[in-house]
Every structure is written in structure tokens, then in C-alpha cells.
Design a protein around this nucleic acid. Structure first.
Length: 1105
RNA sequence: GCACCCGUAGCUCAGCCGGUUAGAGCACUUCGCUUACAUCGAAGGGGUCGUCCGUUCGAAUCGGACCGGGUGUACCA
């Protein structure tokens, strides 16, 4: 393929061409083969809700970096791409659009139609995401891309659910969940965010039933959510308020005593408040506690229900009114109280949509907030409101609907994370099977390295975090240590439906059905449970026995799950016939993403996995293993720290549960991208910017370069973003608007242009609202574009000089000093880049590559060989330079490829054309290249220690020092660059030898016309002096006595202070006695060197004076 | 409230298992289109490493307290 290199670096033209080449040649395809070295990265699957932002760009670039690096190392490398159906998020987006565009709700169009629409939306979104990823250069095997709702993943979900259900790890329970009333579903704690709202604190009086003389007539309670009173089933008071109060006061006294001066006043005020309270409030509380013990009740206002006064320690006499209303169905703490006092019962007073239900009497049908107002008004009228205070309250909001969530008692499905009596069989039926204590515990064992060994005695691999192994492991461990049950049901339509047939039936009916059911329900591919009214769960066999016994209940619940989805249609129909129905809920989206590392590979049966047309089959092929056995377990998971618990931990759990092995050994946690204000970039904040905006302006390579450079350790990355104002008139210069300071516009993700005051849409979502879209940019990426431009031009220079002479292996003696130098430096660079990548430090890696390329190859080597490349130069010297240049450029392109793949791929094509075989001497770094067509598949540089030449490096380093010093002098005297100076060096011994060897280079690089070297060289009156160590250089014809004196004096002063410092240190007895000898020796040496230099300068000063 | 992270040049960040004169890029100043590259080259200026105290022969680096910023998590009747 002939490539005409354009005269200028234009990524916008070059990058799409490269993408096309990669894709059409299937350069990223991964196929199981006989290589033992493999590298597998599972892409953190983006949600199909929309487009990617810079946070994703970071994530994707890091993965691509690792994958390309390993692929070049010859490892069989798979980067598994795909997308997540993102249940709630996606359904919310589509429902919102449905409402906006057609004015309909999901109920208007029905379940099937809604799901169909979401599928369409997902397809569009997937296309867009893939386009973005390909534009960024992501080298995923696109023919293996999966979707969490596709057949392959769906089967894995089904199998996992079935197995966990059968093992008793999945159960249905009545629990308090976070309820999103807008989306009408349970949401996980992780899907919430806090927001402070201005609320009120209402003090309510509940009348005491039949108060006796001297008793309070009311119990005073306080709440921020008065409408929940409709669900109250008790009021609580501390069983012994007096001593609790005393304890609180004593503790506060202690605090006052220990408080630092600054906090003393506040602590004292609090103590004062408590003391006051002990007088004002406590007596009544003591009475009420006595009433509680006597079993007295209060009347719930408006509702008329009588509820008990309960003695429970939850009621803290030092807080609120000292008494607390108990609403078990709508408050987590009250729920806990109910668990301790089951007799009070729980009343759910809300419908799923947030309106008051039948338990609310007159308020039935009102929205929760309308009900709040009405209830307060009515209570006010009845004189039952003591007072109302304003109060700022932090309230949980649903991240998806942005509405306030309600704690809500409902039946949900859970995965048991806690330890289980008898343990849990992990990897059942596999060669890796073992028994763990429980799901959370095995995931803890995985990071602790305490998983049991495999059957053959080899150690099971652990999971480790990088680049800081401790920091985020803590987060992972802490979260798992709670072993909280995982609520997996969502009341949505978009997602994997919970595959359980269930229903209540009279025990007698079940017994009658025994002949029909017993066989069907006790097959290997069916899991069934019979639940007794007290919650006991029995196997089918036990249940039939129990129901025939003396204590048989009258009614039971039956739950049935089939391993294979096909059975839902066949046997399911029969179940329907006897009154069971398929659970309407769907699974939490993380349930399917938790399986990602193995579901994508065809688990449980890759041979029969049904992939889409055009996709790579997952099963065995002749002579090849299947995808699952070859690519599982994988290697590295690359992600941000925010989903360690949600996703990373759960993948470890399901990997161990289903396959008996961890899904990956390394977790690379990259930095979080922040905006100019230091806030996390995210879609929901509207501050995420599209990587395509950056690519359009600077190119994908520039984007990648900068993203790599920014990824240092765990430090978050601040990325100041500007909008390109769309309101400039033609001909006007471009105007950038800093988004950190710009005023926000009317919608999330919109900003006001400060000049025109018009709103701009940065996320491209407000076309309908008539807001002008604006592209985002960030000056940070200029650096990347500059680098690419430099690389482009350096290569162009090389190409101009590669004359197409055939490759001939060179012998070391043919090489010039600078040739040996650059080859030696190249080895250093190769080692450094490789080491930094291995240490998960992309910034240091690209820094090392950059320093070599720019500061050594461009700034020195290319300049040094220019004389040899000119027309008329000695032919052999020229040919040698060209050959070294071709080899070094070749290695440099390889080294840079994982970072800036598009440009290096382009240049590689041209290099291959001009120098089909490159190298220096056989064998050099395995690159006598009758080569790979694409750089993607070329070999990663491994370096060759034989080319290290430290004495050459020292010589060139000395030459460079002279050169810099001479240039500095020239600059100070403003010597025109074209002037060739005569330099007279006063040097002897090794110094003189180095100068002699490097004289031509030095002359060329520092603009010298003549170089004289002699031990007794003398200064002429009109020369400037450069002192380096024990040697001197006199630059003839540069005169300015005063300037010269000042400069030398300044240097002398500096040296004196340095020498003073070291002398002081060496004079310090403690230092000499205690510091390590090596350190002392180092100090002595530098002292000697500095003194020699100072002596030289002083002598020069005397000569001047 | 608890936990974790961060505070180094105007900006964004390295360095931080203690050891000469604290680095890079951008920005800034001066000079230069010597033709691979002005998206460049050469040279230069700029920091009491948040504050205080301690450990040490020696602290940007270790410990403590404080100040400032952020993140996570709990609680808020």
C-alpha cells in the first residue's frame, strides 16, 4: 500500500484512514490459539443511555494502551467490548422522551411496546458509542461485542439465577427499600445522591387515650415528614429516660472538659441545653415511660387508630421531643424498632406512585406532598400542632428520576451475601470447585489471597489493585465485610425478567397436585421451594411430607425456577394452569454486568452460545479451544474507583460462584476526570464533554497523549473546559468561554455566553428547546497535538533522507559516536517505558518515551547527523547515519504506538516503503524486519543490552554540557547564530580526550568555526570564559569585560555558597558519625569538584582583573 | 460524626520507602524562519514545597496539631 505523506500533520484526515485500515483488516480480532501468553481486558461496559464523556475516554484509552502493549508483545490479546442495558437509566430516558414527544406514559403503550422502543434506543446509542470508541482508536475485537440483553448474556443470567435460587442464595423477602415514586421501582443505595432541601420540622401532639390525673394529655413527637403519621403503629419513649439523660449529660461534661478552646463554647452550650432539658422535658418523659410500661396507648390523630406507647431505646431523650413516632413501613430506624417489637405491626401508607393509599382515610389519592400540607392544616385546626421550625434537611434523591425517594416496605428479591451454614459450593461441577463460607466472604478471600488452592495443589490467584494496592482494597474490603444482602429486583419493564413462577395456594390444593407436580418439580433443571406462612422454606419433597403432617398450614407459597428459558413456555403453561404466574419484576442491571467476564465468553456452554450474524462464534473450532476456556480467567480490569463495590466486587463473586476462579488478577484504577471547578465529570452533572469534540479539534492521538500523560498515580485530574462560543460572527476570531466561571444556563449542561448572554448547549440535548449547541475544548490538549506534529515532522525529516539503499548489517566500528550514543539511549528508553507500563504509570511511560524522542533524538541526534546527511558528505558515513536513523525511528514508532496509534501507524507504512528492512547489526532487537504490514501487530521493542555504551553516553553528556555552556554565553553576548566562533579549550587528560573525540559534533552543535584544545591554552583579551569542572573554554572575539566579570562573579558566589553548605555538613560531627559512608563520600566528591571549578573561575577572574 | 485523599513555580501536575543546587509541560522574557517542525529552536526569569511543632546529622519527603479543598460513608424522630 503506497502512502503519500501529506506535507502537514492533519489528524482529521489521517485518523479515519487508519481506522478504516484497522477495521477492514480485522487487526484487533482475538482468536484462541496455542499461545500460552494471553491478555484479556473486559471493557467496563458503558450504559446504552447515551454517549461517552471524557471519563470514559480515560477509561478506554487506558485499556487500549494496555491491550496494544500486550498485543505487540505477542500475547494473545482480547479486549472484550460491549454495552450494558442499564435498566433503570435507560427506561427512564426512553420514558421521558415518550412523555415529552408523545405525551404518553409506559402504561399507555404497554410492556411489549415500551421494551421494543428501548431496544431501538439502545441500538442507536450502541452505534454512537462504538463510533466514539473507534474514533479514539479502541482496539476491541468488535466481532465479539456483547450486549447484556443479548442471547449469550441472557442465558448466563438465567443459569446464574437458577443456580443461586437452587442453592438457596436467592430469596424473596419483605424489606424496606429505597422507593423511587417517579419510576415506581426499588433503587439501590448506590443509585442515590444526597441533596439538601429546605424543609420543616413539625412538632405534633398525639392525644393520650384516657389520661389519668397528673399524666400528660399528649405525647409530643417531631418529624420532617408528617404525612407518614398515617402509617404510624406506635410512639416510642426511652425505657429509662432519666438515666439516659444523666448519661448524656455526663458524656457532654466530659466533652466540655476535653474540648479544644475553639469548640468549648459550642460544647458548653450543648451541655446547657441538656441540663435545661432535664428540667423541662424529662419529667414528662419519665411519666410517659411509666405509661409505656403500663401498656397505655395514644390516639393517632386524623386516622383515629389507637397505637401503643412503646418503651424502646431508639427514642433518645436528648433529641427532638424525646418521644418518637414509629412508622415501620417508611423509616429504616422505625423498621428496626418493629423488628424488636413485632406486635406493633407495620402499615404501608403509600401507593407505588407516591400517593396515599387506602390506609390514609380521607387523604387517600393525594400525592405525598399534597397530603403533607393537608394533614398539617387539619392537625393545626385540631390544635395538635405544637410548633413548626424551618430546617435544612439532607434527603436521598434517586439519581435516575431526580426525585425524593421514600423508604418503602415491599417484597423484593435478594442475593444472600452473608455466610451460609455449611458453606456455598463455588464453581459447582467444574474442576475448580471449592467450598466457601459465603458469597461476600470468598470475594474477601480473593483480595486477601486466602482462597483455598486448586485440587492439584497450585495456588489460586488473588485479585490485586493498582497502582496503589492498599488504598482501594480497603474500600472493597470494607464494603464486602458488611455482607449486606443484595436487592436484585426492580419494578421495571426493561431488563432480565426474574425467572420465577410463584403464587399462593391452599395447602390442600398443592397436595392434590402432588401427582402432577412432584415429578416436574424435582428435576435437575428445575428449582422449586415451598414457603410456609412463617417464612420457613422447604424443598418440594419436604414440603409434601410436612403438609401431610399434623402441623400443616392451610396455605403456602410456591416458587419455581427453570434452568432453561424454553421451559417457561412449556412447563410454565402448566404452572399457570394451577395458579402460578411469572414474577413481573426484572433484575438489577448489575446482576447481568456482574457476569460480564464470563457471560461474554459463552458461559456456561460456549459451544452452543447463539451469537449474532457476523459475530465470532464462541465455541471450539478444529484445533482450537473455546473462548471461555481460553480467555477465562482474564487479566486486568481497568476502571474508575466509583464502581469498585457495585461492579468489581460482584464480578469477583459471580466469577468464583460460577467458575470457581477469579475473573481477573489485576484491577487498574485510574484517576477520575474533574472539571475546571474540581467536580467529578459526569453525565448527570451535565459537565461531561464529548471526546469527539476534542478529537475534532486536536485529533485522537493528541487526546490519548494527554490522557496518558495525566494518568500519574491516584491523583484526580482537573481538566479546565471551555466552550467554543457559537455566537461569533463570520470573520470574528474564535471566542472561548471558560465553563468553570460561566454562568449556568436554563438546563443542565447549558451555559450562558458572557458576551451575548445567550445560552449554549454543551451536551447536545436541547435542540427542541432552541438552544444553540456549542462544542467544548480544553487547551490542555494542545500539548498532545504539538507532540504529534513534532513526531510527524521528525519522521518526515527521516524520510527525506532515506534514499532507499538496501539494508546492510553494520559493524560497531562503522558507527559514529553519535550513532552509538542514540542506540544506547534508545535502550535506556525502552527499558524505562516498559517498566513504567508494567508499574501502571502511563504518565511516566509516555514521559520517558517523549524525553527520548524529543530531547535526545530530535534535539541532538537529528541535529548531529545533519552534516552527514547533506549532499556531498562522505557516502559511507551518510549511509550509516541513514541506517541508524531508520532503525531508531522504527523502534521509536513501536514504542510510541500504544500511546499515539494513528500517527505511528501512518508513519510506519511510509517507513516500510522506504526502508523495507531496517536494523543496524544482526541481531538487533529482533528487527531486521521483513516485516509486519501493520504496526498494531509488530513486535514490541525488547531492547538489546549489548548496545548500551555508558562511556559513549558520558562523552556525549560532556559534549552537551560544553555545548549548553557555550550557547548560554553566546546568548548572553547576543552573538548572532550564524557567527562561527573560535573556541580555545584549556583541558588535559580525560577531559581533553573527550573534547578531541567530540570536537566536530561540538563545533556543529554550538556554532564553532574552530576548536583548539591544549593543556596550556591561554585566554586572549577579547574572549569570554566558560568554566566546566577543571577545564576552561575561551570564546574568542567576545568582549565585554564588565559583563564577563559579573557573570563569573555570580558563578563564583553560587559555588561558594554551595561549597559552604557542604563544608558545614561535613564539619558536622553528627553527620560524619551517623550518615552512611556512601553519602559522605558523595558529599566529599562533589565538594572536590565544586572547589576545582571555583578555583578555575577565580583564576579567570584574576586574569580579567 | 467517622474514614480516606489533596494542598510543591501564574496554571496543571511529577518528586515524597529522608541525602548535593526541588523537576516537567503550559504561560512569561530575550534571541532566532540556521528549513523536518514557528504546532519549532536556543537561552533565561520564576517556588521560604499550606501553617506550626516534633523526630533526625539531615525533612517537600516521617510523626503530631491546625488551616484550606475534595471524596466516600453514617446520622439527622
Amino acid at each position: 500500500m503506497s502512502t503519500e505523506l501529506p506535507p502537514k500533520y492533519e489528524p482529521q484526515i489521517l485518523e479515519p484512514r487508519v481506522t478504516e485500515r484497522w477495521l477492514s483488516s480485522k487487526a484487533f480480532a482475538a482468536t484462541p490459539d496455542d499461545r500460552d501468553d494471553r491478555y484479556v481486558v473486559m471493557m467496563p461496559l458503558p450504559n446504552v443511555t447515551g454517549a461517552l464523556h471524557m471519563g470514559h475516554a480515560m477509561d478506554n484509552v487506558m485499556q487500549d494502551l494496555l491491550i496494544r502493549w500486550h498485543r505487540m508483545q505477542g500475547h494473545n490479546s482480547l479486549w472484550q467490548a460491549g454495552t450494558d442495558h442499564a435498566g433503570i437509566a435507560t427506561q427512564a430516558v426512553v420514558e421521558k422522551r415518550l412523555k415529552e414527544i408523545e405525551g404518553k406514559t409506559r402504561h399507555d403503550i404497554g410492556r411489549d411496546a415500551l421494551v421494543a422502543r428501548i431496544h431501538d434506543w439502545a441500538a442507536t446509542s450502541q452505534k454512537r458509542i462504538r463510533g466514539q470508541q473507534q474514533a479514539m482508536g479502541c482496539s476491541c475485537d468488535w466481532d465479539r461485542a456483547r450486549f447484556t440483553m443479548d442471547d449469550v448474556c441472557a442465558r448466563a443470567v438465567r443459569q446464574t439465577f437458577f443456580a443461586m435460587f437452587r442453592d438457596g442464595l436467592i430469596f424473596r423477602g419483605n424489606r424496606l427499600v429505597n422507593w423511587d415514586v417517579a419510576l415506581q421501582t426499588a433503587v439501590a443505595d448506590d443509585e442515590l445522591y444526597k441533596e439538601t432541601v429546605q424543609g420543616k420540622f413539625h412538632y405534633l401532639r398525639y392525644p393520650v387515650l384516657a389520661p389519668q390525673a397528673g399524666e400528660p394529655t399528649h405525647v409530643l413527637v417531631a418529624t420532617t415528614r408528617p404525612e407518614t403519621m398515617l402509617g404510624d403503629t406506635a410512639v416510642a419513649v426511652h425505657p429509662d429516660p432519666a438515666s439516659a439523660m444523666q448519661k448524656a449529660i455526663a458524656e457532654q461534661r466530659q466533652k466540655v472538659a476535653e474540648a479544644p478552646a475553639k469548640e468549648k463554647a459550642a460544647a458548653e452550650a450543648e451541655l446547657e441545653r441538656l441540663l435545661q432539658r432535664a428540667q423541662d422535658v424529662l419529667p414528662a418523659l419519665v411519666q410517659i415511660a411509666a405509661m409505656a410500661r403500663a401498656g397505655r396507648k395514644v390516639q393517632l390523630p386524623l386516622v383515629g387508630r389507637s397505637v401503643p406507647i412503646l418503651a424502646d431505646e431508639w427514642a433518645d431523650p436528648s433529641l427532638g421531643t424525646g418521644c418518637v413516632k414509629i412508622t415501620p413501613a417508611h423509616d429504616p430506624n422505625d423498621y428496626a424498632v418493629w423488628q424488636r417489637h413485632p406486635e406493633i405491626g407495620a402499615v404501608v401508607m403509600l401507593n407505588a406512585d407516591g400517593t396515599v393509599n387506602q390506609h390514609g382515610g380521607a387523604y387517600q389519592g393525594l400525592d405525598r406532598f399534597a397530603a403533607r400540607k393537608r394533614i398539617m392544616a387539619d392537625l393545626e385546626q385540631q390544635g395538635l400542632v405544637e410548633k413548626v421550625e424551618d430546617r435544612a434537611i439532607e434527603v436521598d434523591h434517586s439519581d435516575r428520576s431526580k426525585t425524593i425517594v421514600e423508604p418503602y416496605l415491599s417484597k423484593q428479591w435478594f442475593v444472600r451475601m452473608a455466610d451460609v451454614d455449611g458453606g456455598v459450593v463455588m464453581g459447582r461441577g467444574t474442576a475448580k470447585e471449592f467450598r466457601g463460607k459465603g458469597l461476600a466472604q470468598v470475594a474477601l478471600d480473593a483480595t486477601a489471597g486466602t482462597l483455598p488452592p486448586f485440587a492439584d495443589g497450585t495456588k489460586r490467584k488473588a485479585v490485586g489493585f493498582h497502582p496503589d494496592p492498599e488504598r482501594y482494597r480497603k474500600m472493597y474490603d470494607q464494603w464486602l465485610a458488611e455482607k449486606r444482602d443484595w436487592c436484585i429486583s426492580r419494578q421495571l419493564w426493561w431488563g432480565h425478567r426474574i425467572p420465577v413462577w410463584r403464587g399462593d395456594m391452599p395447602a390442600q390444593q398443592l397436595l392434590m397436585l402432588e401427582p402432577m407436580l412432584a415429578g416436574q418439580l424435582q428435576r435437575d433443571d428445575v428449582a422449586a421451594w415451598i414457603l410456609l406462612p412463617d417464612g420457613t422454606r422447604l424443598s418440594v419433597k419436604d414440603a409434601f411430607a410436612h403438609l401431610k403432617g399434623p402441623n400443616a398450614p392451610t396455605s403456602v407459597e410456591v416458587q419455581v425456577c427453570f434452568r432453561d428459558a424454553a421451559a417457561d413456555a412449556s412447563i410454565g403453561a402448566m404452572l399457570q394452569g394451577v395458579g402460578l404466574s411469572l414474577d413481573p419484576d426484572v433484575l438489577d442491571t448489575w446482576f447481568s454486568s456482574a457476569l460480564w467476564p464470563h457471560s461474554t465468553l459463552g458461559w456456561p456452554h460456549p459451544d452452543s452460545a447463539k451469537v449474532d450474524a457476523g459475530q465470532t462464534p464462541l465455541g471450539k473450532a478444529p484445533g482450537r479451544p473455546d473462548a471461555l476456556s481460553y480467555y477465562y480467567p482474564g487479566s486486568c480490569l481497568v476502571t474508575g474507583r466509583d464502581i469498585i463495590t457495585l461492579w468489581v466486587a460482584r464480578m469477583v463473586v459471580t466469577g468464583l460462584y460460577n467458575l470457581g476462579d477469579v475473573p481477573f488478577t489485576d484491577v487498574f484504577l485510574h484517576a477520575t476526570i474533574l472539571d475546571g471547578k474540581g467536580e467529578r465529570m459526569s453525565k448527570s452533572k451535565g459537565n461531561g464533554i464529548d471526546p469527539l469534540d476534542i478529537i475534532a479539534r486536536y485529533g485522537a492521538d493528541a487526546l490519548r497523549y494527554v490522557v496518558c500523560e495525566l494518568q500519574t498515580g491516584t491523583q484526580d485530574i482537573r481538566l479546565p473546559v471551555a466552550a467554543i462560543s457559537p455566537f461569533t460572527k463570520p470573520g470574528e476570531p474564535e471566542r472561548l468561554v471558560d465553563l468553570a466561571t460561566a454562568k449556568p444556563g436554563p438546563y443542565l449542561g447549558t451555559f450562558l455566553d458572557p458576551e451575548t448572554k445567550q445560552p449554549m448547549d454543551l451536551i447536545g440535548q436541547y435542540g427542541k428547546e432552541g438552544i444553540t449547541p456549542a462544542k467544548a475544548t480544553s487547551e490542555r490538549f494542545v500539548v498532545g497535538a504539538n507532540f504529534c506534529n513534532k513526531l510527524f515532522n521528525a519522521a518526515r525529516f527521516a524520510f527525506l533522507n532515506l534514499t532507499g539503499k538496501p539494508f546492510q548489517a553494520l559493524q560497531p566500528q562503522q558507527l559514529a559516536l553519535e550513532d552509538r550514543w542514540i542506540l544506547s539511549r534508545l535502550q535506556v528508553a525502552i527499558t524505562a517505558v516498559h517498566g513504567h507500563l508494567a508499574g501502571y504509570n502511563p504518565s511516566a511511560a509516555i514521559g520517558a518515551a517523549r524525553d527520548f524522542f524529543w530531547n535526545e533524538l530530535c534535539d541532538w541526534y537529528l541535529e548531529m547527523i545533519k552534516p552527514r546527511c547533506r549532499e556531498g558528505a562522505a557516502l559511507e558515513a551518510r549511509a550509516t547515519a541513514e541506517q541508524v536513523l531508520a532503525a531508531v525511528l522504527d523502534q521509536t514508532l513501536r514504542l510510541l504506538h500504544p500511546f499515539v496509534p494513528f500517527l505511528t501507524e501512518t508513519l510506519w507504512s511510509k517507513l516500510r516503503e522506504l526502508a523495507p528492512v531496517r536494523g543496524v547489526q544482526a541481531p538487533f532487537a529482533g528487527n531486521e524486519l521483513a516485516d509486519d504490514e501493520l504496526l498494531v501487530q509488530a513486535a514490541w521493542p525488547t531492547g538489546d543490552a549489548a548496545w548500551r555504551a555508558s562511556e559513549v553516553e558520558q562523552q556525549i553528556a560532556a559534549m552537551q554540557q560544553w555545548c549548553v555552556a557555550i550557547r548560554e554565553t553566546r546568548a548572553r553576548y547576543q552573538v548572532p547564530p550564524k557567527d562561527r566562533l573560535v573556541a580555545r579549550f584549556q583541558a588535559s587528560g580525560a577531559d581533553a580526550a573527550v573534547l578531541q573525540a567530540a570536537a566536530p559534533l561540538l563545533a556543529h552543535m554550538s556554532g564553532l568555526g574552530e576548536v583548539q584544545i591544549a593543556a596550556d591554552a591561554q585566554r586572549t583579551k577579547d574572549s569570554a570564559t566558560v568554566v566546566l569542572g577543571a577545564s576552561k573554554a575561551f570564546l574568542l572575539g567576545v568582549v565585554d569585560l564588565a559583563k564577563e566579570q559579573a557573570k563569573l562573579q555570580k558563578e563564583a558566589d553560587k559555588l561558594c555558597s554551595q561549597i559552604g553548605g557542604i563544608e558545614k555538613k561535613l564539619g558536622n560531627e553528627g553527620f560524619v558519625a551517623k550518615a552512611p559512608p556512601a553519602v559522605i563520600e558523595k558529599e566529599r566528591q562533589s565538594l572536590a569538584a565544586l572547589q576545582a571549578q571555583l578555583a578555575g573561575i577565580e583564576q579567570s577572574l584574576r586574569e580579567l582583573g
